[in-house]
Design a protein around this nucleic acid. Structure first.
Lengths: 344, 344
DNA sequence: GAGGGTTGGTTAATCGTTTAACCTCGTCCG
DNA sequence: CGGACGAGGTTAAACGATTAACCAACCCTC
């Protein structure tokens, strides 16, 4: 009984329709394709060929119903419009599909309530596990579904994240090395643990005697950056390239030369960062590594094992044109004395 | 027989477990919850209460298997890292979840092969339909699954899109109204039908006698924008805010005042466009409308009907600081004579 | 030449929901 | 009082894949 050319009665081929062509049972076809049961190699080969020719794909609902696994993971993001997250989404999608998983997205639109709602929707849709990038310092409620959280190493419940603190420190060192002794550290909101870590890392790496002004834009939205520069600040380090860009263009507009007179640096190496003039110096996250780690941890959890916690991924400095040597101190703005200089 | 407090034997509640509590059949519970069959209102109410209390959610694989509908749509994007698409993804997700659908994403990473591969993965995962934002002028292959395409009105097979051509024309008019008579139209690639339409719309709206230089960055990546400005160009219109930003910062760096000496405008109102100084004038897409239209059309197709084709959504001009009146012509750069001025 | 092992399958149950078809009362009407 | 009817359920079959349990040959060995 050879395969009849007859297409399956209607729609997509199923195990049954293929089985009927060969006059065998559907279990045999299943076994042949999965290589699990006992099927003669000859028959198995013919079945595989035929299945391939028909473009057979197992019905995922049927498989999901039987096995209890949907092969889909959920991804909850605070705000897709924020340029940082698409990068993460892209990396997660790539990592997941490499592992044979699909990705169901949910945007919590920045609202805390929507975040939990999104989680539940994803669970209801049958996600095997969920990756959450929590909104500003939100604690993710424990759910009875495997979870992986991308936040900061410091956050309890965090699965994997960039070492934002070390990243901040490295950026601080970069600026110190360039001779800057008066910096402005610009964040948006203290409530974001990521931003707290970045700014905190920057601060902590600055020795005493260095002038450092911390500005939270949420609290001081009208900050006059050019005025700060004229007041002696020679470098701005922002917690995001978006703010760095804002600072950069504002300084440029005010006639200040970047990086000759003032340096500017940010975080995350956003799409535009390389495109602007001067191109932005930035601390980049290794999105692929973070996403890969999150996906791996999540899958491990789905498969029952505990996740091998790899907490902090290093960030890397991308030094571009927007940072340069600190300008020579003028009489107007003497260099602040650092402790290092005082104690020889 | 009242509901026993006993939780269902294991895991999530099912129709059966609830039915058992009430001593009725699972069909009755199904009917009570869906309001379809014949169930006494009293019993139905008790069942609904209990289901709500238990947090019952129907198993989506089971439902999908039975009904042939997964309640999930796929979204294929060319490149999530490109800031234009997340906006669209966000709007699609919002519209879809409003309609009770989940969104499965797939990033084709700009590769044409990956685009078809992504489509097939999504179909295999059981997507009821797919929304595609095709990569630069790629024709989407016909699949046996409902499709909605977001490209340009001109593209065959397109479902819905912004009227990029009219948007270009409107932007051109804005610049003409400001007195500009020498423009540079800057696109990235001719292969993108969206960009062709935008630049084409700009060109077409310019009367004879207006100087207009079209620049495709893919072909002339080293274009010297400040030189163009010094050569008499007073306005740059870019097919994307990303390029507009690049032009803006390059001009600023070169010491040209925007918009006093040169105007710059772009498309899409990307995240950073309002944040830079000067803020960017831009032609914005109505992402919610496009996404909503695409989702509606797709669902209509899924439900068997033909989609009500609403082809072109208008774009809206967001005039900000980066465009202003054309500078008074100097002896060095006399205003080109427009036909309008010649024939009174 | 009977028992044991191996090979190559088949049968049937199961996952949870939906839905058409059927059944069993009680009621009402002619 | 017999039959029709409606209200309120129940039964059972499907959807398609997986998998444990079973079974029929056949081969080999003692």
């Amino acid at each position: 009984m050879q395969p009849s050319p007859a297409t399956p009665p209607s729609g997509a081929p199923t195990l049954q329709s293929i089985a009927a062509e060969f006059g065998v049972s559907s279990a045999t076809v299943s076994n042949a394709l999965s290589g699990k049961g006992r099927v003669s190699e000859a028959l198995a080969a013919r079945i595989r060929d035929r299945a391939a020719a028909l473009g057979y794909a197992p019905s995922s609902p049927a498989r999901a119903l039987r096995t209890g696994r949907s092969g889909v993971i959920g991804l909850v993001l605070p705000d897709l419009a924020n340029p940082l997250f698409p990068r993460m989404a892209q990396a997660v999608e790539a990592a997941a599909s490499r592992e044979g998983y699909g990705v169901l997205i949910a945007d919590s639109h920045g609202e805390v309530g929507a975040q939990t709602a999104a989680l539940q929707r994803l669970v209801a849709r049958g996600a095997d596990g969920i990756i959450v990038v929590p909104r500003r310092g939100t604690r993710v409620l424990a759910l009875d579904v495997p979870l992986a959280v991308i936040d900061t190493p410091a956050t309890p419940g965090n699965t994997i994240a960039s070492d934002h603190r070390a990243g901040g420190a490295a950026l601080a060192r970069h600026l110190l090395d360039l001779g800057h002794r008066a910096l402005a550290l610009v964040g948006e909101s203290r409530e974001s643990s990521v931003q707290r870590d970045r700014i905190g890392g920057l601060r902590a790496a600055l020795p005493d005697g260095i002038r450092a002004e911390t500005i939270w834009l949420e609290e001081a939205p009208e900050t006059d950056f050019p005025a700060l520069a004229r007041d002696g600040i020679t470098a701005f380090a922002a917690s995001s390239d978006l703010h760095a860009l804002r600072i950069l263009t504002t300084l440029q507009r005010a006639g200040l030369a970047v990086p000759r007179e003032v340096s500017v640096a940010g975080f995350d190496d956003l799409v535009f960062s390389a495109a602007v003039t001067p191109s932005l110096t930035t601390m980049a996250q290794d999105a692929d590594r973070i996403a890969g780690g999150a996906v791996a941890a999540l899958i491990a959890r789905i498969d029952g094992g505990e996740a091998p916690a790899e907490a902090a991924a290093p960030m890397t400095l991308i030094a571009r044109e927007s940072t340069g040597p600190a300008p020579a101190p003028t009489a107007d703005h003497p260099a602040p004395r650092s402790q290092r200089e005082i104690t020889p």
